[in-house]
Nucleic acid binder design. Structure first.
Lengths: 110, 110
DNA sequence: CAAACATACAACCAATCAGTTGTATGTCAA
DNA sequence: TTGACATACAACTGATTGGTTGTATGTTTG
């Protein structure tokens, strides 16, 4: 696996490893929200929420679009799916293990 | 969402947010490996690898089984799938957004 | 039994993280 | 143009992380 892919995986899983950020993802996947609209929903400073949004943006999980003085954040479902495909890759490794066990059982009948 | 589920999600995503741990997961999903067999594959101390294994175990991504003086680690594919289902939940939120957009288009023909 | 092996865990360290407050910059509206 | 709003970013703090070394404990083997 390429180094950049691992960096990307690190960033994606890290971004999702925080409940506030996962909640932000739910909101921005449901529709565009300004950073302050998002911030209003959490019991922490605006700057803290803004930093969470920045982490998600750097990981590619959301994009921002300027609209006047607001910055509208929107979730990127393709990035969410790319995380899913990493998990699928893991599951494929596991399937290989099961296939090998099945071979052994077939070769060596009790 | 229940608090414990969020704790669990934090632990799962955090556990996967490290390339060494993801690599360990590939190995233990492919088959059982002792902690020292795993440690032999990385350029870091045995204790460091052991701590990575412990993080994965606490998150429920692998289980250990004693065999003499060895501790054999095995990946839990169900836990991997549970992470996948969290992503699917996110994707469902996004589908709701698209459905709502489609409704608007249907209601308001240009 | 003694020596080597496999694991666990504590203590420590530098780096990163998640939060804070404060300040600067750009945009809208009266 | 002035003031309120929306955002960005720097600097700081305490907690956590990922690594280290050292020590203790149980297990196998000569």
């Amino acid at each position: 696996m390429a180094e950049d892919d691992e960096d990307r995986a690190d960033a994606l899983f890290h971004a999702l490893a925080d409940r506030t950020r996962r909640d932000i993802m739910r909101r921005v996947l449901a529709g565009e929200h300004s950073v302050s609209a998002l911030a209003a929903g959490y019991d922490m400073s605006f700057a803290a929420v803004q930093k969470h949004v920045a982490v998600l943006e750097r990981a590619g999980l959301l994009t921002k679009r300027r609209n006047g003085r607001e910055q509208l954040a929107s979730g990127d479902v393709a990035a969410v799916r790319s995380v899913g495909s990493m998990l699928t890759e893991l599951e494929q490794v596991w399937r290989g293990r099961i296939a090998r066990i099945d071979e052994l059982i077939a070769e060596e009948p009790s």
